[in-house]
Simulated scan of single mutants.
Amino acid sequence: MDIPVVCDMTNAPDTPQERLEEYQRLFSQALAAKERTPEGIRFRFRAAPGVEAWVRDLAAREQACCAFFGFDVTLDGAEVVWDATVIDDAAARAVLEEFYLLPETGTTDVLVR
């Protein structure tokens, strides 16, 4: 089955700008580290009250608009771990790279389609 490399926020409860602002709030409040994995990327967040639910909700909304992503959110001790992978496609890998850089850039074409 071919999965299109498209992010469609048509039915999202938030706008692309609101989503970016939410990412920036999450990163500024709770991001502990990020790393590349053999399968994709990983964000590590401090497991402060509410962070796990926040990350899970955000990952679910991302999955709803970007089907080519795979997300896994787990609790690992004092951290919430968000793993992200994409289908085997050059365009999808480029979007994953933009996602990885989001904490530094604050912007991405991923969320504005």
Rank of each mutant, 00 (worst) to 15 (best):
T10P: 03
C65S: 15
G70E: 11
T107H: 12
D8P: 04
C66A: 15
V95W: 06
A84E: 10
Q63D: 14
D89A: 08
T108S: 15
V110C: 11
E22H: 14
E52R: 14
Y100N: 00
E39T: 15
I87N: 01
A78F: 05
A12K: 01
V81N: 06
R113F: 10
A32V: 13
T108M: 11
P103Q: 04
V73D: 03
W82S: 05
F68P: 05
P16R: 00
M9E: 07
L26H: 05
A92Y: 10
M1N: 12
V86K: 07
F43T: 03
Y100K: 01
R93G: 12
D8C: 07
G50S: 07
R25D: 12
V95L: 09
E35Q: 14
R19S: 08
V6H: 11
F45C: 02
E97P: 05
Q63I: 10
A67C: 04
Q24H: 10
E52P: 04
C66I: 04
S28H: 03
D57M: 09
R19G: 08
T85C: 10
T15A: 06
I41M: 05
E52Y: 01
W82E: 03
E22K: 14
D88K: 13
T85R: 11
F68S: 06
W82Q: 07
D109H: 11
V112F: 04
P49Q: 05
E35W: 10
R61A: 07
F71V: 04
F69K: 05
M9V: 09
Q63G: 11
F68L: 08
A30W: 00
A67Y: 04
F27H: 01
P103E: 00
P103M: 03
D72Q: 14
A12W: 02
V86F: 10
F71G: 01
Y23R: 07
L102S: 00
P103G: 03
A92N: 09
G40P: 02
V112Y: 03
F69T: 07
T107V: 13
F71P: 00
A64Q: 12
L20G: 08
E62M: 13
W82I: 09
E98F: 01
F71I: 05
W54I: 08
D14W: 12
E104H: 02
T15V: 11
W54Y: 13
W54A: 09
Y23W: 15
V51Y: 03
V95M: 15
V112Q: 08
G70I: 11
D72C: 15
R36G: 06
D2C: 03
G50P: 06
G106P: 00
I3C: 08
T107E: 10
I87P: 01
L111N: 09
G40A: 04
G106V: 00
P49R: 04
I3W: 04
R93A: 15
A60V: 09
F43P: 02
E98D: 02
L20R: 07
T105G: 03
R44D: 05
V80N: 02
R19T: 15
F68R: 01
T85D: 06
F71R: 05
P16Q: 02
L58Q: 12
V6L: 11
A12M: 07
G106H: 00
D2Q: 13
A12N: 06
E98V: 01
D88V: 10
